[in-house]
């Protein structure tokens, strides 16, 4: 995997070591009402930014931490 990511604990590492955790959507809102659609949208709908987006990654094969970082989805490069 060409991607490298910077783990806040272990530093810059090979992308193979990480698990993608999706776009950063912020903490769950307190109330979703009773509509399954609203909930479904929250869980499954993504913005799919063509450019720089903030996302969650887990250093699975390292320290195990979850962290956010910014990645350019067009170049598959982490932003400095």
């Amino acid at each position: 995997m060409a991607l490298t990511l910077t783990c806040p604990v272990c530093g810059k590492r090979n992308g193979y070591e990480f698990r993608y955790g999706g776009e950063d959507k912020g903490p769950k809102p307190d109330d979703f009402g009773s509509s399954p659609e609203t909930w479904c949208d929250y869980v499954h709908m993504n913005r799919c930014v063509a450019g720089i987006q903030k996302e969650w990654w887990c250093h699975r094969d390292g320290c195990g931490v979850w962290f956010t970082t910014h990645r350019d989805t067009l170049k598959n490069l982490e932003m400095e």
Partner: peptide
């Protein structure tokens, strides 16, 4: 499992 629990408490 460890990853799962940490993910769901990440905020």
């Amino acid at each position: 499992t460890v990853e799962w629990i940490r993910y769901h408490t990440r905020y």
